[in-house]
Write a protein that binds this DNA or RNA. Structure first.
Lengths: 205, 205
DNA sequence: TCGTGGATTTACCAAATGGTAAAATTTTTA
DNA sequence: TAAAAATTTTACCATTTGGTAAATCCACGA
């Protein structure tokens, strides 16, 4: 029979796969792919190493699964940018969603950053097929706003890069931020205010 | 005798240590600390593995040496920001120096990013003693300019974070940038223009 | 409740990797 | 140039690590 019907996974399967992926996210995001060991993941998941290999084909399988899931989450905030909305409000709302994501999903941000930093060895196809079409589409939306005189002339592509860079910075460089802002209870609140101001000025007509 | 006089290193020592560090920078910046092997570094340097261990005490020694050297280079552009100069010009010149650095020293940028991303396990002391005093000093300079009415009110700390994030993005996320700007011969030129515009608007009175 | 298939553990293994000892070679010095 | 010092290579070793085989345990439907 063709494996078109992979049989519904049992409750245990579902629970354990989720546990493993969560543990792996924790470990991979802190130590990178090569810096993480199956023993660490197993320990963090509270399972034995062979047990983990019962649920996944290997270390790489876990990593790839994680990256694939991540791509979906990652694109959501950009997808939500609506061409029919108000340009300034849409872009500033996008900035806010990215700030919130850096605060709420720092592990995901670091996993992604680590993968890109090392040349995206396991993710380049996903970048081409998943990210790039969406990126191009939204650049066109922004360019349309500019052409309609609803935004000042600016470089849509580099605008998006700047939004990514500034927001993800608070997750990816968290340690540095904490060293430089000691005792700050909520860096993200001030970060958010600063970024809204900065991009607000950039987008003002 | 106390080792206060470590004897001047020979010509060969100097050349080989430099060769090794350059090879190590190449390898570490691409694969991270754990992802790099002494064999890779040896191969890239054109030396044998034991020969490398003749010049350095071990893998970690090479990495730490590299990070210490890097910190100096890294702080230079910020050090050059002059309290006696014109605020807008000083800050925009700083942005430009950082853009140039991302273009000319991407390996150094990625090495630094990788270290911070993983929690700065070998660099935290350097951050406290090297980076933080300078950061605080320059934040005070910027705050002084604001208080003197020479800059609009803004958050000096997060301004610097934004400069770091946007400029280093082009080195650290180079692969992603290349995927999204295919066929672009010189992304840094457009990046520079965009960042000068953006920070120019932010700093305008 | 008993048997069966799924889940888990125990006991391993081969390859990779950081590192060392000592011989051999080259360079420098007297 | 010959001895001494510095450099490089050869041959290893111990540990770590991703992964496997097979025995054992356990949940669940007949």
């Amino acid at each position: 029979m063709p494996d078109g019907a992979p049989k519904k996974p049992s409750r245990i399967q579902l629970r354990n796969r989720r546990t493993i992926l969560d543990a792996a996210l924790e470990v991979f995001s802190r130590h990178g792919y090569r810096g993480s060991t199956l023993d660490q993941i197993a320990g963090s998941a509270g399972l034995s190493k062979p047990n983990i290999l019962y649920y996944f084909d290997g270390k790489e399988d876990i990593h790839v699964t994680l990256l694939n899931q991540l791509m979906e989450t990652w694109l959501d905030p950009l997808r939500a940018m609506n061409a029919a909305g108000d340009p300034q409000a849409e872009i500033l709302a996008y900035v806010q969603r990215k700030v919130d994501m850096a605060r709420d999903l720092p592990r995901e941000s670091r996993l992604f950053a680590g993968e890109i930093l090392q040349g995206a060895p396991r993710m380049r196809p996903d970048l081409e097929t998943g990210l790039r079409p969406l990126f191009d589409e939204k650049c066109n939306v922004i360019q349309g706003w500019i052409d309609a005189g609803r935004l000042p002339p600016l470089d849509p592509q580099h605008l998006i890069f700047s939004i990514w860079a500034t927001t993800q910075h608070y997750a990816d460089f968290e340690v540095q931020v904490n060293v430089l802002l000691p005792g700050e209870q909520d860096p993200h609140a001030r970060a958010s205010a600063h970024l809204q101001t900065m991009f607000g000025k950039l987008l003002a007509l």
